[in-house]
Design a protein around this nucleic acid. Structure first.
Length: 231
DNA sequence: TCATTAAATTGTT
DNA sequence: AACAATTTAATGA
């Protein structure tokens, strides 16, 4: 499998794999291709800082970012992680307001950067793009409603289970397989659980045949069961 | 190809 | 938080 290492996922591949792409006509695709650029962020660097005005809609080509906020007490609170294939930032773009949260790359990450002008133009010219945004906003609404439940559910096993299930939302993060290349430390950042506890939780979930744990990655075996774990 | 080493990740306390 | 064990990646013979 190493002799024919697949080419790295490129910006154009990421666009083509997005749910809204097939709905665009040739002219729209051409303009999007011309105006979206790739930006790279090393691990542990800020992609967008809270308070900055949002000038682009962004997608993850490769890597992993987290949406987080820092409380008055200085404690970092993570809301969600966004893996390859995911798009984010439409909320702040639509409302034309400053970012509400920090976006931090958890490891080396390549970002597809769509300027606001391109985004606005798609919004006013493509029904498919609008349909995608409606679906995405709806999915996220459901995700964050789940967070309320999540907060009260102190059981770390369940938090880890939900966190993993979120990362496999087929609409928000299309295309990637059941294998998630993420370290237990990164899962800890995303689920608000210590790395050590993540390790324990993964063993519980593995015994329940919901996931398979491998070095540096987790394979989702039973997504439906992960979603309802603990409820 | 194999051995050695460093770095990253995991498992345990 | 600290530590040991394990896996991976890089290096050079």
């Amino acid at each position: 499998m190493s002799e024919l290492d697949p080419q790295p996922f490129q910006l154009i591949d990421m666009l083509a794999a997005s749910a809204w792409w097939p709905g665009l006509d040739a002219a729209q695709r051409q303009r999007v291709t011309a105006e979206v650029e790739e930006r790279r962020f090393p691990g542990a660097t800020v992609v967008m800082r809270r308070g900055e005005t949002v000038e682009a809609w962004t997608g993850v080509i490769e890597g992993l970012v987290k949406m987080s906020s820092v409380s008055a007490a200085g404690k970092s609170v993570t809301f969600t992680g966004i893996g390859a294939g995911g798009w984010f930032g439409e909320g702040s773009l639509l409302k034309s307001e400053a970012r509400k949260y920090d976006i931090v790359a958890l490891r080396d990450t390549r970002i597809a950067w769509m300027p606001r002008s391109t985004f606005d133009w798609l919004l006013s010219s493509s029904i498919a793009f609008n349909r995608f945004l409606l679906l995405q906003l709806n999915e996220r609404l459901g995700q964050f409603i789940g967070l309320v439940e999540y907060e009260r559910m102190l059981e770390p096993d369940a938090r880890v289970a939900r966190c993993l299930a979120e990362m496999f939302n087929p609409h928000l993060y299309p295309g990637h397989r059941s294998e998630l290349e993420i370290s237990q430390e990164e899962i800890g950042y995303l689920s608000g659980v210590s790395r050590q506890r993540v390790n324990q939780a993964l063993q519980v979930l593995a015994r329940a045949k919901l996931v398979e744990v491998e070095y540096g990655s987790v394979r989702i075996v039973d997504l439906a069961a992960l979603r309802r774990y603990g409820s």
